[in-house]
Design a protein around this nucleic acid. Structure first.
Length: 487
RNA sequence: GGCCCAUUGGUCAAGUGGUUAAGACGCCGCCCUCUCACGGCGGUAACAGGGGUUCAAAUCCCCUAUGGGUCACCA
């Protein structure tokens, strides 16, 4: 029986999900599903100083919203728990001590003060900081004595003095570094908790992770992990380092710089499905021209071979387009449901049929948050200049517009039923009777009822939504404006 | 600065020694049309530079340049 594929998403609980993290989680999920494996959630909370209240709940909520359900994790359990690193403290210590016994690690009692001093000295001498291995030379008895005294300590990994270390990455190939480049990194901190660099190796092994997916900022740390795997004699997982997602200026996306997180995008009116779809395509290509994928289709199409090496710019422009495509494919009722909260922000009038507005807006909406600015005129006629009535292509002038509006009033007033069909018949018949083009009638009416140069929908749709009374009121305002302009 | 990684249009990207170098976003134009949008059609624009290898190089090798990552008791 082949080993079961197991991937893991291992966020630190910071309270929100970066776009890069989302994509990493997505790829991990896809690989697990693709091979009928397991997708595991592990919380990396070994930095006690950076804990954020409620952040773990945010992670559960976000994964659920994104549709990336995990098979094992703190909330759903599993055979390899606990899945929260702070609850595994004793495990790391135990393995660290084993490394010490094997001579692959050692206790270090250097204080932060001494390290800071060392760093300052080395930098003053124009060197890069590097631990000087002072504690490596401590005798066994000396170490025992200090431990017995209860002196604070950390445990450091002892790097080989010579040689090279290589590791295989499925995306980047073989990467080799000189062991002399490697520092004796800290595995266990003085608070007894492990660093990420240690915990990830222990946990990935104990949780039987087969495919490690992470951002390529870990590429240069990977050799150190292999040294640990080798010291323990453990099997090395398949490494999949994915290219960074960056912004146009070339830097890595960061919350601090105001770059949107997953939840930001949601609140800006992007659909989960569109975000997932777009993000899947950053740094990965299916090798075909297909660019619309459901999550299930991604599982089907995903292939590690399609992951690229070069960083990808997060282009909100293209995401916006894609979101628009998703919006247009929505059933009208669904669109309406999503749009409703945005309508409520500007429309309070009970007389307006919001479903009709949805029909108008669905093909014109790319992001829900842009809705309020498009529909304010339904609630209240904006102030506008009579120059709006002049349209070269429509062959309308202020004079011709005035005539059209004046002629439209009685015709519309005479209507007993008020709907699109009736309004259209009335206005187009009138245009024909007057011997003018449709546009010469409809453009002035659209202008009068919207007060805008650009509006979603035309004269007929808007008039229908506004209702007879409000439509006539607005047309009369238009007439008044045009007459005043003549003087 | 040391080490590691990357480099196809403005952006996402296909390509794996022989192609007119796909496709998508954006932008521009045309059509549809009462404005805008949708939709349809068309256009714009790329192999970072230099050396090799080869009959042949976007594809292989070297150098340079540029960009990024990493050098914490963060992850």
């Amino acid at each position: 029986m082949a080993t079961e594929v197991r991937t893991r998403y291992a966020p630190s609980p910071t309270g929100y999900m970066h776009i890069g993290n989302l994509r990493t989680a997505l790829y991990e999920y896809l690989i697990a599903r693709k091979y009928n494996g397991k997708f595991i959630l592990r919380i990396e909370d070994t930095d006690q100083e950076r804990l954020v209240e409620g952040a773990v709940d945010v992670i559960y909520k976000t994964l659920k919203m994104a549709g990336l359900q995990h098979d094992e994790g703190p909330d759903v359990g599993g055979d390899y728990g606990p899945y929260i690193q702070s609850q595994r403290k004793h495990i790391y210590m135990e393995y660290a001590k084993k490394l010490v016994e094997m001579g692959a690690a050692y206790y270090c009692f250097c204080t932060r003060e001494r390290l800071a001093e060392l760093k300052a000295q080395q930098e003053a001498a124009g060197q890069t900081y590097r631990y000087d291995r002072r504690c490596l030379k401590l005798s066994r008895e000396e170490v025992e004595r200090r431990l017995a005294e209860g002196q604070p300590f950390v445990i450091r990994q002892k790097m080989p003095d010579t040689g090279k270390t290589s590791f295989e990455d499925v995306v980047y190939g073989t990467i080799t570094v000189d062991n002399s480049e490697l520092e004796d990194q800290i595995l266990i901190k003085s608070d007894g908790l492990p660093t990420y660099n240690f915990a990830n190796v222990i946990d990935d092994h104990l949780m039987r992770i087969t495919h490690v997916v992470r951002g390529n900022e870990y590429l240069s740390s990977a050799p150190k992990y292999n040294l640990l795997y080798n010291a323990f004699g453990w099997e090395i997982p398949t490494y999949i380092h994915v290219p960074l997602i960056i912004k146009e200026s070339g830097q890595k996306l960061s919350k601090r710089a105001g770059d949107p997180s997953f939840e930001d995008l949601i609140s800006m009116g992007y659909l989960v499905e569109a975000i997932i779809n777009y993000v899947a395509l950053l740094g990965w290509s299916p090798g075909t021209n297909q660019e619309f994928f459901t999550l299930d289709e991604l599982v089907e199409a995903f292939d590690i071979k399609g992951i690229s090496k070069a960083p990808a710019v997060f282009d909100i422009n293209k995401l916006t387009w894609m979101n628009g495509e998703y919006i247009r494919k929505l059933p009208l009722e669904k669109f309406h449901e999503y749009a409703l909260p945005y309508y409520k922000k500007v429309i309070t009038s009970e007389k307006i049929d919001l479903m009709k507005i949805s029909k108008l807006l669905q093909p014109r909406t790319e992001v829900f948050s842009s809705i309020p600015s498009m529909i304010g005129f339904f609630q209240e006629l904006p102030e506008y200049s009579t120059e709006l009535y002049i349209h070269k292509k429509m062959k309308t002038t202020e004079e011709s517009s005035l005539e059209s509006l004046k002629a439209a009033v009685p015709v519309l007033e005479a209507l007993s039923t008020w709907n699109e069909q009736a309004i259209q018949d009335a206005l187009l018949n009138l245009a024909q009777k007057m011997g003018i083009k449709n546009g010469q009638m409809l453009w002035p009416v659209r202008t009068a009822v919207s007060g805008l140069a650009v509006s979603p929908g035309g004269a007929i749709e808007i008039a229908d939504i506004l209702g007879k009374e409000e439509t006539l009121r607005r047309i009369k305002i238009g007439i008044e404006k045009l007459e005043n302009a003549k003087k």
